Structure formats: structure tokens, C-alpha cells
Simulated scan of single mutants.
Amino acid sequence: MRSIGNVERNAAVGDEPPLTAEQFALPAEHRWQRNFSARCRWAAAALRRRPPRYASV
């Protein structure tokens, strides 16, 4: 925390009532799917077509 105001605001959140299920689910709508290539058919197919990194001995 860089300022006393930030510390006070963050500490005050603990005095609030807990989030409802509706409020808790709201950020999930804006979630960034980080494993994008695994969900794309074209990217998964490209990974399967890629030659092996090292030749087997």
C-alpha cells in the first residue's frame, strides 16, 4: 500500500457484509480465458501438425 488512504479503504472492506451469490458471479462474466489456443480448433490442429522438436534416437 502506497498511501494511508488506500490502507484505510482496503481495511474498511472487511467491515462490509459478504457478497451475495449474484454479486460474486458477476466478475466471472468478464473473465479472460488465458488458455485460448486450447479452445480453438485451428490452433489445436496446428499444434498436432507441428514436427517434433528433437529427432528420436
Rank of each mutant, 00 (worst) to 15 (best):
A38V: 07
R41M: 11
F24N: 01
R31H: 10
A38F: 08
A45I: 06
A12S: 15
R34C: 10
S37D: 15
T20W: 01
A46G: 04
G14P: 06
S37C: 12
G14H: 13
A46E: 04
R41S: 10
D15P: 00
F24H: 05
Q33T: 12
Q33C: 05
W32I: 15
S37A: 15
R41G: 05
A38L: 10
A44Y: 02
E29D: 09
R31M: 09
A28I: 01
A21N: 03
L19Y: 12
A45N: 12
R34V: 13
W42V: 04
A28G: 01
R39Y: 11
P27R: 10
D15I: 05
Q23G: 07
A38W: 07
W42N: 06
L47C: 03
N35E: 10
E16P: 00
E22W: 00
P27W: 09
L19V: 10
E22A: 14
E29Q: 14
N35I: 06
A44R: 15
L47I: 06
A12V: 02
R31A: 15
A44S: 13
L26N: 08
E22S: 05
A43H: 07
N35R: 11
E22D: 14
L47E: 14
F36I: 11
A21T: 07
E16G: 05
A38M: 03
P27A: 06
R41L: 13
V13Y: 12
A21D: 02
P17H: 04
D15S: 15
A45V: 08
A28C: 03
A44D: 05
F36S: 02
E16I: 01
L26D: 07
L47V: 11
W42S: 12
R39P: 00
W32H: 11
A12E: 15
P17E: 13
R41C: 02
P17R: 06
W42C: 08
H30W: 06
F36E: 07
P18N: 07
A43W: 07
L19I: 06
H30I: 03
L47G: 13
P27V: 12
A28W: 01
P18W: 00
C40L: 15
A46Y: 01
R41H: 06
S37R: 08
P17D: 14
A28D: 00
A21S: 04
D15W: 09
A12C: 09
S37Y: 04
Q23V: 05
N35P: 00
W42D: 13
P27D: 11
R39G: 04
P17C: 03
W42G: 01
E22V: 08
